[in-house]
């Protein structure tokens, strides 16, 4: 049966999805974030656990951890940043292409954690702009996923890219810890991430 063009686009709405380009781009960006491997210390173990089969980050689109910063969008700073590592961190961040985001995973990356001394940079936001802070020592995979979902929500609504162009700073959102939810039989509370 030939297509009916007499009513213009109205007759074809079941065959097309329409939207603004900006929305589509943000939707695809938020759900295909590729993290750079920046596991430093204990939080790296929990980050790997989040990528494992039990917690499974790939259902959020980020199964592929790219080793090369040029191919990555997200830097999850997982672990304590020492004085020797700080220039390396900045170099990796600079090598990433825009748009790029930073999740500071764990208290050591967020504020220096329990190591308030000469050797640790007191918060990775002294070196790079941070978008989401995930607390915990280490934050369990659920907290990391909560942080990632929050970030995805921010990307989806376009908040982050806009803010970054305006001030150059990160979104600086702190999420709450969500660990231990799978220890019992209660269903896990998911966050939509949308603000």
């Amino acid at each position: 049966m030939p297509l009916d063009f007499s009513e213009g686009l109205e007759g074809l709405d079941h065959n097309f999805l329409t939207g603004r380009i900006e929305d589509l781009v943000q939707w695809s960006r938020s759900h295909s974030v590729w993290p750079a491997t920046f596991g430093l210390a204990c939080c790296a173990i929990e980050m790997m656990a989040a990528g494992g089969a039990h917690y499974d980050l790939s259902r959020f689109g980020m199964e592929v951890f790219r080793a090369s910063p040029r191919q990555a969008d997200l830097m999850i700073v997982a672990g304590r940043v020492s004085q020797k590592m700080a220039p390396v961190l900045r170099q990796i961040y600079d090598q990433m292409m825009e748009p790029k985001w930073v999740i500071s995973m764990g208290v050591c990356a967020s504020t220096g954690g329990m190591f308030n001394n000469y050797a640790i940079v007191q918060g990775v936001d002294q070196v790079v702009p941070v978008d989401v802070y995930a607390p915990g020592c280490p934050p369990g995979p659920e907290t990391l996923m909560h942080a990632i979902n929050t970030l995805q929500g921010l990307i989806d609504t376009g908040d982050i890219t806009r803010r970054r162009k305006a001030t150059g700073a990160g979104a600086q959102v702190t999420v709450s810890q969500r660990d231990g939810q799978t220890a019992g039989d209660a269903p896990v509370a998911l966050s939509s991430g949308r603000r």
């Binding site: 004085q83 220096g112 308030n116 001394n117 000469y118 050797a119 007191q122």
Partner: peptide
């Protein structure tokens, strides 16, 4: 190029 020897007792912890 670090200055000082951190574990000496006259080197502070460096707390903020």
């Amino acid at each position: 190029d670090w200055d000082g020897h951190p574990l000496r007792k006259d080197y502070g912890v460096g707390r903020i």
